[in-house]
């Protein structure tokens, strides 16, 4: 316990790395997930099939296997992401984010799709009936409702993503879980160290779910 408190900067920097992994992959998976969801619900049968196959395969694969693929497998093909190092980003960090993004984007896509499916067909029909154009139907009626319905499932996805950043531990990234291992290795009294690191995760999870609750309440529509 004192060990962690006297080295509190190490604790903070570990969580900073966890948050960094989380934020970069969250943005990445939102972008890729929206693209996948658009392909999936779009009118073009082939794109929809392709997105479905990607989502089904990746969702059912453990995250750890995806990490092995990106971090150990891709270098076998000569894909090492050296170019990001010139930008001053560690290629390990980049590859961990890539693995997390590839995995999480499938869950984001499903959350967005379920949000769109939550809008009753009558809404769009009514909008067309009162003479709104396609663009008007989308921006005024369908998308605002779909977006709101997406908030709770997206919050779950991001909470899962935050916890999944711990998998990067197994691939040599010194985030919170790895730092906990470091402290428990050199200390005899492990339980308090575990609890203090767990508390860090609990706080971050609570922040995400609190934020999601606020948004949900703010945007709630009377149905």
């Amino acid at each position: 316990m004192e060990l962690v408190l006297s080295n509190f900067d190490l604790y903070l920097s570990a969580f900073r790395l966890t948050i960094g992994l989380f934020l970069v992959s969250a943005v990445g998976s939102l972008l890729l997930g929206t693209l996948l969801a658009a392909m999936r619900v779009g009118p073009i049968a082939f794109m929809s099939k392709a997105a479905t196959v990607y989502i089904t395969v990746v969702r059912n694969t453990p995250l750890l296997i995806i990490f092995v693929f990106v971090i150990i497998g891709l270098p076998k093909l000569g894909i090492l992401f050296r170019s990001v190092e010139e930008l001053g980003i560690s290629s390990f960090f980049f590859r961990a984010c890539l693995a997390l993004t590839l995995y999480t984007s499938t869950f984001v896509a499903e959350a967005i799709r379920s949000g769109i499916n939550a809008v009753p067909l009558g809404q769009a029909e009514a909008a067309r009936a009162i003479g709104l154009t396609f663009g008007g139907t989308m921006t005024q009626v369908v998308l605002p409702q779909a977006f709101r319905a997406t908030v709770p499932p997206l919050a779950s996805v991001f909470i899962a993503l935050l916890k999944n950043t711990s998998v990067a531990y197994a691939f040599g990234i010194l985030e919170a879980t790895a730092r906990m291992k470091y402290f428990t290795n050199i200390s005899g009294n492990d339980l308090p160290i575990f609890l203090i690191f767990a508390a860090g995760y609990v706080v971050l999870v609570e922040i995400i779910s609190f934020g999601a609750n606020r948004l949900e309440r703010r945007w709630r529509v009377a149905r």
Partner: peptide, 11 residues
């Protein structure tokens, strides 16, 4: 629910 499973295993 908030603690990563991997961290629990390692601990």
């Amino acid at each position: 629910r908030a603690v990563p499973v991997l961290m629990l295993m390692i601990f």
